[in-house]
Amino acid sequence: MSFAVKSLLLVATLGLAACNNPDRYGAGGAGGAGGIGGAGGIDTTGLGDPNNPASIAYFNQRVGDRVLFAVDQSTLTPEGRQVLAGQAQWLMTNAGYAAIIEGHADEQGTREYNLALGERRAAAVQNFLISQGVTASRLRTISYGKERPLEVCSEEACYAKNRRAVTVLAAGAGV
């Protein structure tokens, strides 16, 4: 993994954002659709020990929960395919998890186009995972367009990290 992954011990998901979403355990997700204005319960889940291959922490940090894309592209890079092959392997080994794949774009584009582009990126990941043997019903996609950048600078160094698709694990065998 060439990029740092936040070592979150807990992921708090606001009840509102999770009302239709399964509980989300990802470290590099969109931060949820929730916010200060939300209400409801907070679900707390341990991510586990990254040395335990069956843990979420292991998936996020060792397998790698994300792939990056070139400008305007949704084509998987060779590095991306390698990460996704590892994700597929992990998902097939750990049948108790489903995943939501979040597609994102950098800020260089209109809101509408970036929503469509993020969906295209998420679908590229979904299709690859299915081609590797992951059951389609365990995967779902969402696009955040340019709404949830990971890095906030307005330079290519940040844009490159924002053009991403993140596989966020969720409880249950289907989404």
Binding site: L14, L16, A17, A33, G34, G35, I36, G37, G38, A39, R111, E112, L115, Y144, E147
Partner: peptide
């Protein structure tokens, strides 16, 4: 609306 969910356009 409140700001519990992202709203766009």
């Amino acid at each position: 609306t409140d700001s519990a969910s992202i709203v766009l356009a």
